[in-house]
């Protein structure tokens, strides 16, 4: 028999937990045991449960938006190979089209603040870059990306993606500086 202690919990919270336990076919004791074990586990990972749940939400949203994980080197290699094989125009067009699609996606998904939704989404995606900043301010958007391992091909394709997305979101590119691993773009609202 496991030694038990009594925990004081908010009544409404206790009611919801009892409901979850019932839905999952668990006893309340079993459910609580599991929950508290996970709280200790999260703490030992040096993280708050809230952070982990928010991350889970974010990744679920990425999945819904049609994203997958791929090894970075492999992805850059495939992109660079396709680009260097001489099909640059169709690749640039494909990236611009993809940008269009995601621009429209955020107009539908966050009609009150499509640009904000797109910014949060892109910032959460760019973990492969050493530095990525997207600042939205007073009808202007500044995009800055630095990553020494991005080949020129991929940096150019990224800029085509942003052009496509911002075009749909009602912005026009006013300044652009793109070279291997470095991207800086300035968009203004039309």
């Amino acid at each position: 028999m496991v030694k038990r202690k009594i925990l004081v919990a908010d009544e409404e919270l206790a009611r919801k937990l009892a409901q979850i336990a019932e839905e999952k076919g668990q006893t309340l004791f079993g459910l609580l045991n599991d929950i508290l074990e996970q709280a200790v586990r999260a703490h030992n990972m040096g993280l708050a449960l809230k952070f982990i749940l928010d991350e889970y939400d974010r990744l679920r949203a990425l999945k819904e938006a049609g994203f997958v994980h791929v090894v970075k080197g492999l992805w850059l290699d495939v992109v660079d190979k396709a680009y260097s094989l001489g099909d640059k125009r169709s690749l640039l067009e494909k990236w611009r089209e993809t940008g269009h699609w995601y621009g429209r996606y955020f107009i539908v998904k966050c009609p009150e603040n499509a640009i904000g939704g797109f910014r949060d989404f892109i910032c959460s995606l760019m973990w492969g870059a050493s530095e990525f900043v997207m600042e939205v301010d007073n009808g202007e958007v500044q995009v800055r990306c630095i990553s020494t391992d991005f080949p020129e091909s991929y940096t150019k394709l990224l800029s085509a993606f942003f052009e496509g997305a911002f075009e749909v979101l009602g912005y026009r590119c006013m300044e652009e500086d793109v070279s291997k691993g470095l991207l800086r773009m300035l968009f203004k609202k039309q």
Partner: peptide, 22 residues
């Protein structure tokens, strides 16, 4: 000793000690 709006729930003693420490 239990305030209104709160409930008592039984949990494994060992976990409580660990959580208390954290």
């Amino acid at each position: 000793g239990v305030a209104r709006g709160r409930k008592l729930i039984a949990v494994p003693s060992e976990l409580i000690s660990e959580l208390n420490e954290l």
